[in-house]
């Protein structure tokens, strides 16, 4: 009996000294050190697993101790701050940016994904001083949640109407 990890299998933090599910048992941890092309590293232990493509769950699972949002006030510009969102992408970045720029108290809002291989984006917000950047972001999030809630209800309403009227559908 053998486990065959499906491509992209989830690595479970194995307990009791088992190899993590999804790692390959034939991967030697020393093979790189035997490779003469690697200079200066001969004899040192090299984690060959580090050369494998990163696990895909690193795109959305926060690491131990990692925060969802890091906040850093901008010292050179008044009422400005840089937020770093970990394990998030354009889905949230563009949504927040678009909401923030519509606020009358927000002077500047922009986001950036510093590198496409790292699931991080940075959001810079500058306000007019009436609200702090942090409040502006929280407010934007709350309004979006609210808007989505209305959308959900609108959709349910339409769907129920459609079900009553059409008795299923006609696509």
């Amino acid at each position: 009996m053998a486990y065959e990890p499906v491509f992209g299998a989830l690595t479970i933090h194995a307990k009791g000294g088992k190899a993590p599910v999804g790692s390959w048992s034939n991967a030697s941890r020393y093979s790189c050190s035997l490779d003469p092309r690697i200079n200066g590293n001969v004899g040192t232990k090299i984690d060959v697993l580090a050369d494998l493509p990163p696990d895909r769950y690193e795109l959305f699972l926060l690491e131990d101790g990692e925060k969802k949002v890091e906040f850093e006030p901008e010292t050179r510009v008044p009422h400005a701050a840089m937020f770093t969102f970990n394990k998030e992408d354009h889905t949230l970045g563009n949504l927040l940016r678009a909401k923030l720029v519509k606020s009358e108290h927000v002077v500047f809002a922009g986001y950036q994904v510093p590198h496409p291989l790292f699931a991080v984006f940075k959001l810079r917000v500058q306000t007019d001083g009436e609200v702090s950047p942090k409040e502006a972001v929280v407010q934007a999030c709350q309004e979006l949640v609210k808007e989505l809630q209305i959308l959900d209800q609108e959709f349910t309403k339409e769907w129920e109407l459609k079900k009553i009227a059409g008795g299923g559908g006609d696509l």
């Binding site: 949002v69 906040f71 889905t91 999030c141 949640v145």
Partner: peptide
């Protein structure tokens, strides 16, 4: 996702 941001900032 948005709620997580609010929570993270709070």
């Amino acid at each position: 996702k948005l709620a997580n941001v609010i929570k993270g900032l709070s």
